[in-house]
Structures are given as structure tokens and as C-alpha cells.
């Protein structure tokens, strides 16, 4: 049963991700990205990372994708289509590179990977996350605020320029 659920949602996420790339209408691309994120959330849930699954749905599939949708609608991407002869040229260049990377990736994935030793009852609990967030990774967590602050100041500066 577990395997069936995994392969189903893994398949859904791969197909949705491919749709994002190959879909020529931008809105459909954004919608398939939401499907992809939703399927990923199920995979996280299966791994026992319940908190991460919830965050994935709320933050990514919810908040961020709504913003994406708005921006896509405002920009009217239909008016700017990719010239098709350039598409052929880039595909010819991209295929060998992609094939090489895929080979490398398959090779790397075929090896044995170390697994993290976390008990099923521990993961996903708010306590475990808190220990990581406010102890081991306290500094990256705090430093992210400087990153966000720089981005906000930057956005304000860029908007103020126009007047």
C-alpha cells in the first residue's frame, strides 16, 4: 500500500514538473507547478516529515503560487512567444548536455546513500524542529532575517527610483 501511494504521487509530481517545462501557456504551467508541490507534500508526509508537508502546502502551494499566478496574469505572457527556430537550436544543444547529466545522475543515484538515523516517533514533531531551529541552526535562522531585510530595502530603493 505504501509503495502504491509513493509511486502514484512520485509519478504525479514528475508528470506535473514536465508539464511545467513543456506547457506553452504560462497559466497552465503555474497550475501544474501547484500540482507538483502538492504531490511532493504527500511524499514528505510519507517520510514522516509532517511539519514539512504542512509547510509545503501552506507556503509553496498556497502563498507563493498565488503570487505567481497574479504576476503571470498581470504580465500577459501570451503576447511574448518564443521564436520557434531558436527553440530548435537550443534543443539540439541541450539534448547532449541533458543526456550526460542524466547519466551522471543515474550513476550517482545507483550508489548506496547514507541514511539518517531518526526514529519514526521523533520526526515531524514540533519539539524536534524547535531544537534544530533554535539550537543547531540558530545562526542561519537568524541570519535569514538580514537576507530578507536586504531584499526589502532593495525593493523599496528600486521602487523609489522612478519618481
Amino acid at each position: 500500500m505504501e509503495h502504491v501511494v509513493f509511486y502514484f504521487f512520485a509519478g504525479v509530481s514528475v508528470i506535473a514538473a514536465l508539464t511545467v517545462v513543456f506547457q506553452s501557456t504560462a497559466i497552465y504551467g503555474v497550475l501544474s507547478l501547484i500540482v507538483c508541490f502538492g504531490a511532493m507534500a504527500v511524499l514528505f508526509f510519507q517520510l514522516g516529515a509532517h511539519f514539512l508537508a504542512a509547510i509545503q502546502v501552506i507556503v509553496y502551494a498556497g502563498a507563493i503560487m498565488v503570487l505567481f499566478l497574479f504576476v503571470t496574469m498581470l504580465l500577459d505572457p501570451e503576447s511574448e512567444r518564443f521564436p520557434s527556430n531558436r527553440l530548435v537550436k537550443t534543443t539540439i544543444l541541450a539534448l547532449p548536455v541533458a543526456a550526460f547529466l542524466a547519466l551522471l545522475l543515474l550513476q550517482a543515484l545507483a550508489e548506496s546513500w547514507p541514511t539518517l538515523d531518526v526514529g519514526q516517533e521523533q520526526t515531524g514533531r514540533i519539539e524536534t524542529i524547535a531544537a534544530y531551529l533554535f539550537r543547531d541552526y540558530l545562526l542561519p535562522f537568524e541570519i535569514t532575517s538580514i537576507l530578507v531585510l536586504a531584499a526589502i530595502v532593495g525593493a523599496v530603493v528600486l521602487v523609489k527610483r522612478s519618481d
Partner: peptide, 15 residues
């Protein structure tokens, strides 16, 4: 942390 440091540097520099 190295990644975050690089991002702080990059985001500020883009602006």
C-alpha cells in the same frame, strides 16, 4: 551558513 552569506552578498549587490 556559507550559502546564506553568499545570498546576502548577492541580493545586496543586485540592487
Amino acid at each position: 551558513l556559507t550559502f546564506l552569506g553568499l545570498e546576502i552578498l548577492s541580493v545586496s549587490t543586485y540592487i
